[in-house]
Nucleic acid binder design. Structure first.
Lengths: 273, 273
DNA sequence: GCCGATTTGTTCCCGCGTTCACAAGGCTCT
DNA sequence: AGAGCCTTGTGAACGCGGGAACAAATCGGC
């Protein structure tokens, strides 16, 4: 298996950093240049794109608290980054601040939401309505952040007819129809690992080009399909690695360190939220 | 707030890439050098650490299929990376391959597991037993990948006494006792955003230094605490961004960009919230 | 015992991302 | 109006990570 020679139609996408992977297309490039819309945001670095949602959330929080204006320093603290990075990130999408003053919270919030594309709702389909699928379907952050669950699908017919968060669970074979009827562009895979590749294949066949995968498996998809991966055990293992290093560096092993524990300020809530 | 001047005891950690964040300590360094154990693996790059669990999983899969030896090319394909990167990654933990032959699957599997620290189980506590908490508690990948859920905690007393995946749901106040009794080093937060910071504070006070956070909020923790974040809506928003670009680049699907409507002052109650 | 085939481990180079530091611009007070 | 202060936006330096290419080493055959 895995000959280096022939070029397969599908290939396993390269991993980027941080536990999530995204297949980008380095080849096609496509000289769009002046075809986006009104703004001058052609290519925003991937690292910046990954932080924009964090800024957006921080801005919503600030707005809810009644803040109308904020400096890059304040917003950076709320978002957990340093202010230089924040300013550079924002500079990729235009000059939306006022020197000497800061940013208008509402205005910047709208601009970022527009850039990300969450000013209107994206229809989403979730496949695999087990424990995780239930949790995802009930997740309130969906509707409040620019996404709408339009279909829940599961191969297990015992689950058909059940209603989760106001949406009926349907047979997996309805995927094609659901995608067509609702114009679904984003699919979420919450199935066991064994089924994930098949589900992904079907999604791709239906025209879905953006997939969020919770199954612990590396999906093989065509180049123009984006796959982001959320993998619980990988995250835990990364933590374990650092924990082990801490333990080795200081005292012996696991039994942890309880002794002088509570010296920390405890309830000293920081600036953010 | 958020003056650059004074150094706070706790600070909001910087974000790394890919939707997960990890607070690393650039200061302490601590010249350990010769104190790890038998091997010579001092500092493994963060990007490599993030991929080791992927390799480990690929190796387990290969072993299950009966493969006893594999080349870097094969393993790389199974893990979704290119072979050069794989070899470089593995070189950070030592020379465990045989030139001209490849890697012994079982041997390499053990070496990686040892490096990550999952040769024995890590006791884990989960706080917040809602939909997500249920899903996590039932997640089989826990036990099979070096972790053991030793406690489920929830502030809601209606959930106390319930048993999920063989573990009783207990009051949140039992955290300290559970941590001490079982030597818990890793905590998982699956609470609503509003409660997450309090939970994190308590965890830190109990001596937990590794936290996996599912709540959509930036946690403020001391420097020596690692926080990894899993955020569904951020992942979706990143997908939405790319999806929007695809749509804009090709045809004009999806109502897409609202005119240039919102200018500075307006209330612009845009999409989110 | 030697040679060729094969695959690892490593070195070098390039590009991205982060950070520093400062110039540019706007607001306020006199 | 002008000076001083404040904050944004950006140019440049720097370090890390990725990828290709190559040297080192092992196996098998003659």
């Amino acid at each position: 298996m895995a000959r280096p020679g022939p070029a397969h139609k599908r290939h396993t996408q390269p991993h980027t950093q941080g536990g999530t992977s995204l297949s980008r297309v380095p080849v096609r490039e496509r000289a769009v240049t002046t075809r986006t819309s009104t703004d001058g945001a052609r290519d925003i670095p991937e690292a910046t794109v990954a932080r924009l949602p964090v800024y957006l959330r921080a801005l919503v929080t600030l707005a809810d608290q009644g803040t109308t204006t904020c400096s890059s320093e304040e917003l950076a603290t709320a978002a957990g980054v340093n202010s230089a990075k924040l300013r550079k990130d924002l500079s990729y999408l235009g000059s939306y601040g006022t020197r000497g003053v800061g940013y208008d919270v509402e205005y910047l919030r709208y601009q970022i939401a527009r850039q990300i594309g969450v000013t209107q709702d994206w229809p989403v389909v979730i496949v695999g309505i087990g424990n995780l699928g239930h949790a995802l379907a009930n997740f309130s952050g969906f509707r409040s952040r620019g996404f709408r669950v339009v279909a829940l699908l599961d191969a297990d017919e015992h689950r058909h007819g059940e209603t989760v968060a106001g949406v009926d669970v349907r047979p997996f074979d309805d995927l094609d129809r659901m995608v067509r009827e609702h114009g679904v562009a984003i699919g979420v895979i919450a199935t066991p690992a064994a089924a994930a590749q098949d589900v992904a294949d079907r999604m791709v066949a239906c025209g879905i080009r953006s997939i969020l995968n919770f199954a612990p498996i590396v999906l093989a998809v065509p180049d123009d399909v984006d796959v982001r991966k959320v993998d619980l055990s990988i995250e835990l293992q990364i933590l374990a690695y650092h924990e082990q290093r801490k333990a080795n560096g200081a005292d012996a092993v696991v039994p942890s360190v309880v002794p002088e524990s509570v010296e920390q300020g405890s309830t000293a809530r920081g600036g953010a939220a």
